[in-house]
Design a binder for these strands. Structure first.
Lengths: 350, 350
DNA sequence: TTGTAAGCGTTATCAG
DNA sequence: CTGATAACGCTTACAA
C-alpha cells in the first residue's frame, strides 16, 4: 500500500542506498541526485518506515517519559516543556504514567522501556538506589527533573533558597509560630526537594531563635486533599500557628480551605505561603515561591538530547534554575506585631 | 549485548519459530516446550525487540494520542484514562501535544503519526472536515473524545442535557438575566460541545420566555484568563446579568475573580455556574456540571482497542456518558425573588 | 507439534 | 559519488 524506499529508488533510477543517504541529508550525494530523489519521494508520498530504520540502525529516535501522575498540574507543565524540545528534534515521546504505587511497582518490575527508547526522562519521581540502578541498567542516557543522581542529567531548582525565601518572608512579617505542611513521610534519598524545603524551614526557624516542634508539622502528600487534612490536624493541636508554609501550592489550597471552614481568615488569622506558583495561585491570591516548570522540562530534554548526540554525559551534575518569591494576599504581618503592622495595607479580595 | 530470539532458540534447542510462538502464547506449542522456552528466555533476560517484531508483523502495538494541551486539567484527566487502558493491553502511548495553533498546523501538515501507530486517539480537538480527512488517510482506527465523526469511534457526554441542567438550575432560582461565557468564536463543525452547550442556553432561555441578546454573551476561549476577560466585557455592558453560565469551570473561575474584583459578590450579586467539575471547583465552591473525564478517556481507549482487535468499527457512532449537576455555593436565588427566596439557606464560605 | 525459509524496510560496509 | 550486499530481529506461510 504505501511506498517503500525501493520504490523511490526504482523511480529515481538510483540504488536504495543512495535514496537512504539522500533523504537523510548525508554527505556524499550529489545535489542533483538528491534533488531528484527528494522529488520522487514526495511525489510518491514516501514516508520512512520507523521499524525498518530502527531495526537497521539500532536507534529508536524515541524518548521514554516517566511521570508519576499526568493529571497533576506540575507534571502537565513539565511534559509540555519536554515535548516541545523532543518534537522539535524529531524524537517520539513514549509516555509512561505510573499513577500511584501499584503502577510504580509494576513499572520497575517490568521495565517496559527496555529496547524501545534511546533515552529516558524521569519527572520528579522519588528515586532510591534501587530505582536508580534499574534505570542505569537500561544503558541509555537518563534525564531527571527535580532530583540529582550521579551519572544522570538533571535539572532542578534551588529548593533551599526557595523555601528560605518563603520562610524569611514569614519571619519578617513577625511570625514565629509557623507550621509546616510537608510532603510524604518516606522520601528516598535521591529525591531531595521535600527534604531541602524542610531543611530550610528548620534553618530559618533556628535563625530567629525558634525551636522546632513536631506539633507544628503535618504531612500533606502533595495533594489538595492532603493539605486540607494536614491543616485539620494542625488546627486540632494545642498551639495554633499564626502562619503556614506548605511545600506545594496544592497543599496550600487545601490548607486555606480548612482554615476558612474552621471560621478563621487568611491572612488575618493565619498567613499561608505555598510553593510552585500553580496556575490557580494567582486566582486564590496565594503568596508562593515561583519555579520555572515548563522550562525545567525543556532544559532537561535539551541536556538529554545533547548527551545523546555527543555521547558524553553532561559535565555539570545538575543544572539549577532560579526561583522567586511572589508575594500575594495570603500572607500578612502578624496581628499586633509592632514591628511590621504599620507596613501593612489591606488587599482586595481575590 | 542483549540476547535475541535466536539465542533463546539455540539454548532451548528449538527453532526460532517455536520460540516466537511459545513466547507469544500462541497455540500449537506443547506445554513442555513452552515451559522450557520461557525458562530459557528469562534466564537470558530476553526482551523482544519491538523493531524486529513491528517490521515483521506490520503492527506497532502503539497508539498515538493527540492532545491540544497536555497541561490543561481536562486533558491530563483524559490521558490518565487512556493510558491505563492502553498500558493494561500492552500498547505503547505515543504522545503528541499540539499546544496551540502553530503546533496544530505543523501536525496536520506533517502528520507525524504515519507508519508509526496502529490507531489514534484524538482528545477534544476541534475537528473540521479537512482534519477528519487527514486522520482518515492514516487508514487506522481513530478514536475521539468530545466529538463525533462518522466512521470514528467516539465517546462524549450529553452536552445539551448537561447545559440544560445548569441553565434550568439558574432559571429555577429565578434568574432571567443570564449571561453566557462561551468557548471560542469559530468552532469547526465536528466539535459540538460549545455549540450544544450554547444551544441549551438558548433553549432554556426561550422556555422561560426570555429573548436572547448578544449583550449577554462573551467568548472566553476555555481558559481562566479568557473567562476573566469575558466577564469584564459583560460587566462593562449596559445590562448587568444576575447570573452567568460558563461553558467550562476554568472560565467560571476567571469570571468569579472578575466579579469579586469589581466589588461584587458571588452568589449574592451574581450567581455563577460552570461545566466540568474541575478539581478546584469544590474548593472554590462552584456550582457546576460534572462530567466523567477519566472515564471518557478509558472508554474511548477501550472502544479503540476493540476495534483494533475485531477489525470492526464500533456499531454505535458515539457512546454518551452521563453528566450531573453539582450544586454548590456559587449559585443562589435571585435576590428578592419571592418564588425562590424562602428555600434559600445561606451556605458556609468555601 | 515443530522446523525451514522467505520476507519486512532500512542502514552500513565495502567496493567501484 | 554510487551501488551491491549483508545484516538487523522477528513473523509467518508452508512443509514436515
Amino acid at each position: 500500500m504505501s511506498s517503500t524506499l525501493d520504490d523511490v529508488a526504482r523511480l529515481a533510477g538510483v540504488s536504495p542506498a543512495t535514496v537512504s543517504r539522500a533523504l537523510r541529508g548525508l554527505p556524499r550525494v550529489s545535489e542533483v541526485t538528491r534533488a531528484r530523489v527528494v522529488q520522487v519521494a514526495d511525489e510518491l508520498g514516501y514516508v520512512i518506515s520507523p521499524s525498518g530504520s530502527r531495526l537497521a540502525s539500532g536507534r529508536t529516535h524515541t524518548v521514554g517519559v516517566v511521570v508519576p501522575y499526568v493529571n497533576r498540574w506540575f507534571f502537565g507543565q513539565v511534559i509540555t516543556g519536554v515535548e516541545s524540545v523532543l518534537r522539535a528534534a524529531g524524537f517520539d515521546l513514549l509516555l509512561y504514567n505510573l499513577g500511584g504505587d501499584a503502577g510504580r511497582d509494576r513499572f520497575f518490575a517490568e521495565m517496559p522501556l527496555r529496547r524501545r527508547v534511546d533515552a529516558v526522562m524521569v519527572l520528579s519521581l522519588p528515586i532510591g538506589d534501587a530505582e536508580a540502578e534499574a534505570f542505569r541498567a537500561l544503558r541509555v542516557p537518563i534525564g531527571l527533573v527535580g532530583s540529582a543522581v550521579e551519572g544522570f542529567a538533571g535539572v532542578r531548582i534551588d529548593d533551599v533558597a526557595g523555601a528560605t525565601a518563603a520562610m524569611r518572608h514569614l519571619t519578617h512579617l513577625g511570625h514565629r509560630e509557623i507550621a509546616l505542611i510537608s510532603g510524604g513521610a518516606d522520601v528516598p534519598m535521591h529525591f531531595t526537594p521535600p527534604i531541602d524545603r524542610r531543611g530550610a524551614y528548620l534553618d530559618v526557624l533556628d535563625s530567629v531563635g525558634v525551636e522546632y516542634t513536631p506539633d507544628l508539622e503535618a504531612a500533606g502528600d502533595f495533594t489538595m486533599a492532603g493539605g486540607e487534612q494536614a491543616m485539620g490536624e494542625l488546627l486540632g493541636r494545642s498551639r495554633r500557628p499564626t502562619a503556614v508554609f506548605a511545600q506545594s501550592d496544592e497543599m496550600a489550597f487545601g490548607a486555606m480551605r480548612t482554615i476558612r471552614r474552621a471560621g478563621l481568615r487568611v491572612p488575618e488569622d493565619i498567613s499561608v505561603v505555598g510553593f510552585d506558583d500553580h496556575d490557580m495561585a494567582d486566582l486564590l491570591d496565594l503568596t508562593t515561591v515561583r519555579q520555572p516548570v515548563v522550562e525545567q522540562g525543556a532544559t532537561a530534554a535539551t541536556m538529554l538530547l545533547d548527551w545523546l548526540a555527543s555521547g558524553e554525559p553532561p559535565a555539570e551534575p545538575a543544572k539549577v534554575l532560579p526561583t522567586r518569591l511572589i508575594v500575594r494576599g495570603s500572607s500578612a504581618p502578624l496581628a499586633g506585631d509592632p514591628e511590621t503592622s504599620r507596613h501593612h495595607a489591606p488587599r482586595p479580595e481575590a
